[in-house]
């Protein structure tokens, strides 16, 4: 069964680039640009990894992360925060809410790939 990666970002160009990169790795991908919609997608089909932007319409990335971790059945779900805010407190906050890792924008492709691979092993 192929690995499924959900990409949550409201910047279409960034979402598009991540989609390309993940597919290149052989993962299945889905893209959403809205926090609430992302949760709906996870409900329907839980992914293996969520690439989660912070600045999102409806629910922001932190809220989405918090809600994922509320659900025990999603405990195995890996969350990788992808944030332009490379500020210390954002990183801490994300990790405290249960994110498994983070990548700051702008990112290097091999960095994102390595992080995702790391989460999957």
């Amino acid at each position: 069964m192929a690995t499924y990666v959900l990409i949550v970002d409201d910047e279409p160009s960034i979402a598009m680039s991540l989609e390309f990169i993940m597919e290149k790795q052989g993962y299945e991908t889905q893209v959403v640009g809205d926090g609430a919609e992302a949760l709906q997608r996870i409900e329907k089909a839980p992914p293996d990894v969520v690439l989660l932007d912070v600045m999102l319409p409806t629910y922001d990335g932190f809220e989405v992360c918090r809600r994922i971790r509320e659900r025990e059945e999603w405990a195995d779900l890996k969350v990788l925060m992808v944030t332009a805010k490379g500020r210390e407190e954002d990183v801490k906050r994300g990790l405290a809410l249960g994110a498994n890792g983070y990548v700051t924008k702008p990112f290097a492709i091999k960095d994102v790939v390595a992080k995702v691979e790391g989460l999957l092993t």
């Binding site: 910047e11 160009s13 960034i14 680039s17 991540l18 990169i21 332009a84 924008k105 702008p106 492709i109």
Partner: peptide
């Protein structure tokens, strides 16, 4: 600034 830079960087790299 990071948002457009991220896209530009990502696609350039791709």
């Amino acid at each position: 600034l990071r948002t457009p830079l991220t896209s530009i960087r990502a696609f350039s790299e791709i």
